[in-house]
């Protein structure tokens, strides 16, 4: 790939501008996290930075962000793993293994339908199940709900990526004596690893942001995730901006690190697998 130096500079300059557009509100969040309410209300550029909001979210009566962050990491990674595994197997089967049209079509419509329903319609049934199963107020309950809600995304996205793999590769693998499982694991999966990584990241992200089920299936910080802690700052008649900003910023960092590491790992790990195969 050859590119002229000027066009390369232009490309990077415009991308840096995009980076600025994305980060601008993030800087604003960081700035707000250092303000008291009175500073926010004054609307002035100049203020005395305070750490009070960070103290409040970790030691205050209202939130235990350390626990919430831990729960969020457990829940979102588990959901990404489970959806990744179940979703890519099912997607491979549906996209490549010659199901009758009505089977594949029926399942896709079913998945789309779940995705289209407002999540609130699932709240009461899942609440009753979680209570009955004895997992209420644990991360397991939240994981259950998030896995179901994210399954449509996982399957439909992966079906698309599997469909683009040339058929000859599988056939060659089977001729070489691979079982279908081996062909899937050692030949096909490594080819779609960018797609797999993107899917896992998106599922992780959706679980990370989810509020309704995290709230409905828990009572204490034993099972609750970050969005509930953040939403607690939206109160009956005011919003605690500073604490909300501090909470959002603090929670973002471990998630970002984890997402980047996982992305690299998925891409590298599967490459190794492919080479071995």
């Amino acid at each position: 790939m050859k590119q002229g130096a000027p066009s390369k500079i232009a490309l990077n300059l415009s991308l840096l501008f995009v980076v600025f557009l994305i980060l601008f509100p993030v800087f604003y969040i960081v700035q707000t996290s250092l303000k008291s309410m009175a500073d926010v209300y004054s609307g002035s550029f100049f203020f005395e930075a305070k750490m009070m909001n960070y103290e409040e979210i970790f030691t205050g009566s209202r939130s235990n962000f350390a626990e919430l962050t831990r729960n969020s990491l457990i829940v979102s990674s588990s959901v990404a793993l489970i959806c990744g595994a179940i979703g890519s197997l099912a997607a491979y089967s549906l996209a490549r293994l010659s199901w009758q049209r009505w089977v594949a079509g029926g399942i896709i419509v079913w998945l789309l339908f779940i995705n289209m329903m407002p999540p609130i319609v699932f709240v009461t049934p899942y609440y009753l199940w979680a209570r009955a199963a004895g997992i209420y107020d644990t991360p397991a309950a939240v994981i259950m709900a998030h896995v179901v809600l994210n399954m449509p995304l996982a399957v439909i996205m992966m079906m698309n990526f599997f469909a683009e793999v040339p058929k000859e590769l599988e056939e060659a693998a089977v001729i070489d004596g691979c079982t279908q499982w081996q062909a899937f694991r050692l030949v096909i999966l490594p080819i779609v690893r960018p797609g797999l990584a993107a899917m896992a990241v998106l599922v992780f992200v959706f679980s990370w942001k989810e509020f309704l089920f995290s709230l409905s299936l828990t009572t204490t910080s034993a099972g609750r995730t970050i969005p509930v802690g953040i939403a607690n700052f939206v109160q009956e008649f005011n919003i605690r901006y500073g604490e909300m900003a501090a909470g959002s910023f603090v929670a973002m960092i471990p998630a970002l690190i984890l997402v980047l590491l996982a992305q690299r790992h998925i891409i590298k790990g599967l490459t190794v697998g492919a080479v071995k195969g």
């Binding site: 204490t220 939403a231 109160q235």
Partner: peptide
């Protein structure tokens, strides 16, 4: 006393779920 501290918009649904369960939490 244990407290379930819930954001205001979640109160209605949480209450409704609890009173419909086998035994309220």
């Amino acid at each position: 006393i244990n407290l379930d501290v819930t954001p205001f918009p979640g109160m209605l649904d949480k209450t409704r779920n609890a009173v419909q369960a086998g035994e309220s939490e």
